[in-house]
Amino acid sequence: MNTILVNRIRVFRAEHRMSQSDLAEQIGVSRKTISTIEVGRFVPSTIIALKIARYFKVPVEEIFSLKEE
């Protein structure tokens, strides 16, 4: 069984009315990095995941979760 990482970054961005570029600038990564994390093409490091969670002021588990395929 394959385990994949899913995320709700897009949901949180929409709630905060933020673009990918805005979030990227706040986290200190490129827009491409944020967009590839959102579509599941790039798995972020623990540091980036925690930075995103800290920015949105939620636990990291609210943004990232594991899904069994």
């Binding site: 009315r17 933020m18 673009s19 990918q20 570029s21 827009r31 491409k32 579509v39």
Partner: peptide, 10 residues
């Protein structure tokens, strides 16, 4: 590899 299908979203 760099050409991920990603569009700017607001």
């Amino acid at each position: 590899l760099f050409q991920a299908v990603t569009e700017e979203e607001f």
